[in-house]
């Protein structure tokens, strides 16, 4: 494992911890999109099917369990927790996330490396992860006033994606040169979705202002 991959995994882990910290200690999910969180839970559930069939490493198994457990517990908190659910802004979080799922299923059935259940599910999870942040970004645009933890959560997610691209570049040059178009392109699309957010995040950080997105 190279340094970019490890740093990517750690920023991903921190992003989840920041979100859980916000929900668990402040008992608030204000500014957090349930739609995006549900999509992430689906992404992990379809991608980590190999957890019982293929053993890669203890690290790999533990991280998969953490991401599965955290994503489902975040969804549980927002939907069921008697205090947290009150802070959920249902009227603002209106992105029709179900309409993202069907195109991803069709795309995964058409464009995949192997036409097997596990492989199609894995490919579906890559396509879905690429667009899963969209409901969250739309919600941010609407709420405008973004609290620090929510801003950090999205920043860390974007950092994780950027580091994964550096990891693929590194792997391409240090390992056998295989081409992974599906992973690379969906990963690149996903990272580009953060470009706008990054711009305003760094802008507010540089000027020491509160993060605000333009209407």
């Amino acid at each position: 494992m190279n340094i970019f991959r490890l740093a990517g995994d750690m920023t991903h882990l921190f992003s989840v911890l920041v979100l859980l910290l916000k929900i668990h200690t402040i008992k608030s999910c204000a500014g957090i999109s349930l739609k995006t969180q549900e999509l992430y839970a689906l992404v992990f559930a379809t991608r980590y099917l190999d957890i019982f069939t293929d053993y890669i490493s203890l690290y790999n198994t533990c991280m998969k369990l953490i991401f599965l457990g955290s994503s489902f517990s975040i969804v549980w908190y927002i939907r069921r927790h008697k205090i947290v659910r009150r802070s959920y802004d249902k009227e603002q979080d209106t992105f029709r996330h179900h309409f993202l799922i069907l195109p991803c299923i069709i795309l995964a059935l058409l464009i995949n490396e192997k036409f097997t259940v596990k492989e199609v599910m894995w490919t579906f999870s890559l396509y879905l992860e690429a667009v899963a942040i969209l409901p969250q970004l739309v919600l941010l645009q609407r709420t405008r006033n973004i609290d620090n933890l929510t801003g950090q959560y999205i920043f860390l997610l974007g950092a994780y994606r950027s580091l994964y691209i550096l990891n693929w570049i590194y792997r391409y040059f240090t390992e056998q040169h295989y081409v992974h178009w599906i992973t690379w392109i969906s990963g690149l699309v996903q990272t580009l979705l953060y470009a706008d957010f990054f711009y305003y995040y760094f802008h507010s950080w540089k000027n020491n202002e509160k993060l605000q997105l333009p209407a």
Binding site: D9, H12, D54, I56, S57, M63, R171, E175, Q176, H180
Partner: peptide, 10 residues
């Protein structure tokens, strides 16, 4: 094993 199989990623 395929050393460059990205299935070892998360």
């Amino acid at each position: 094993t395929d050393s460059n199989d990205l299935k070892d990623e998360l």
